[in-house]
Structures are given as C-alpha cells and as structure tokens.
C-alpha cells in the first residue's frame, strides 16, 4: 500500500483523475439545476388545491423513488441514446437521469417545507388580496427556506455520489469511470488500490464540507427551536 512507485503511477495519471472530477462536478451541477426546477414544480403541484396536479406529482415521485437510479440511467442511455437521438452523450444522459431522480426527492423536500408553513399565513395574504401565485412566492416559499435547506444539502451530497451510477450508463467520463479505468488499465492495474483510494478521497473532499454544513445548520435550527420553546414554556 505504501510502495512509492505505485503512488507515482497514480501521480503520472493525475490528469485522468482531474478530468473525471471536472465531469462529475459538471454532471452534478447541471443535474442539480434540473432537479431543482423539477423539484419546485412538482413540489408546488403536490400542494395544489386541485386533484390532477397532486396525482401527477404523486405518480412521478413514487415511480422514481421506487425504482433504482441505475435502471433509470441504463434505460435513458440504451433506449434514448441508442435510438439515434443526436447529441445525447453519456454526460448529458447522466445529467438528465440525475436531474429526474433527485427532482423527485427535492419535490418531497419542497412539499414538506410548504406544509410546514401555517395555513394562517396564506389566509392573511388572501385576505389582503394576493393571488395564489403571489402568496406562494411572497409569503409561503420564503418561509420554507430554513426548513428546506438542510435536507436540500443532503440531496446535493447524494447527487454527487450518485454520479457513480453513470459508470454503467455510458461511463468513460465521470470520476468513478476514470478511477475504474485506471484500476483495471494496462500498466496501471498494479496500483488499483491506490487509484480507488484517490477516487474516494476526491469524493470525500467534495462531499464532507457540504454534509458538515448541513448538520451544523440542522443543529442550529434545532437549538433555536428548543430555546424558543423554552421561552414559550416560561410564559
């Protein structure tokens, strides 16, 4: 494990790891953008007063949450990319798959945030003459942010780790694929262990600060709730 020449092999192929990291980050960021848009749209639909949007949102969320991401990614890559859609590269396939998958989870986070705001808030807005859309964007959504942020950061961490599913769907570009290619490659396979360690360290360095931030945030909110409860109890 500590042989210098094996680490040298990793060092000599550093560009491969750097490229992999870059495409994983690009995939994660673009996937997150899609997931946020889908999550907000379907989250709003799930709290709608009329039934059809609620049902559509439910179907989307249940279907995506109860099938494996890997299967969704494979389906996208081998059915869509192989059916001759131009420009649907492995990278784009990964972005779309991650966006749709995490959109379902973010939609649930958004829904939980919206239902955490007391009904009286929207009633006050309606009584002032705000429309439903104005009420949502001016009164309700701003109040959900503190509830939504911690689970949202966890979703981002999961999304980054889930780029690893793209190894089988297209592969070749993201960090996991690059790491694995290194580990089984001619001339580099002898340093397989070192390669995986480096891949893991890179994931850790990206994800750990995010999840630490999320749990700190959560604790701060919890402490604040406890102290405000105490105040009410004293009253």
């Amino acid at each position: 494990m500590f042989e210098q020449e094996k680490w040298e092999i990793v060092w000599n192929h550093r560009q491969s790891f750097i490229d992999g990291t870059i495409s994983t980050v690009i995939m994660a960021l673009a996937g997150l953008a899609i997931a946020l848009v889908l999550g907000i749209i379907f989250g709003l639909m799930s709290t709608s007063q009329s039934k059809p949007p609620r049902i559509i949102s439910r179907i989307y969320v249940e279907f995506i949450q109860n099938t494996p991401l890997m299967l969704q990614a494979l389906f996208l890559f081998y059915s869509v990319a192989f059916s001759g859609v131009k420009g649907f590269t492995a990278l784009i396939c990964g972005i779309v798959a991650l966006g749709i998958y995490h959109g379902a989870y973010i939609s649930e986070v958004v829904r939980a945030g919206i239902t955490s705001v007391p009904k009286g808030q929207s009633e006050a807005a309606y009584s002032q003459g705000f429309s439903q859309i104005q009420t949502m964007f001016l009164i309700v959504l701003p109040q959900t942010i503190k509830v939504i942020l911690p689970p949202m950061v966890n979703q981002v961490v999961n999304l980054i780790k889930n780029t690893s599913c793209m190894f089988l769907a297209g592969g070749a570009v993201d960090l996991i694929s690059r790491t694995n290619a290194f580990a089984v490659g001619e001339g580099t396979a002898s340093a397989a262990g070192q390669g995986y360690i480096i891949g893991g360290v890179i994931f850790f360095v990206i994800c750990f600060p995010l999840s630490t931030l999320a749990s700190r945030w959560e604790n701060r909110l919890k402490n604040r709730d406890v102290s405000s409860n105490k105040k009410e109890g004293a009253k």
Binding site: P118, G120, Q121, E123, S127, Q128, G129, F130
Partner: peptide
C-alpha cells in the same frame, strides 16, 4: 383577490 384588494381587510385570531 381583486375584491379583497380593493374592499376589505381582515384581522385574525392568531394575528398571522
């Protein structure tokens, strides 16, 4: 929304 905007306001039990 339109009618409440130009004609009425409300004060609630829970302040809101």
């Amino acid at each position: 929304a339109f009618i409440n905007k130009i004609h009425s306001s409300m004060v609630f039990q829970q302040f809101n």
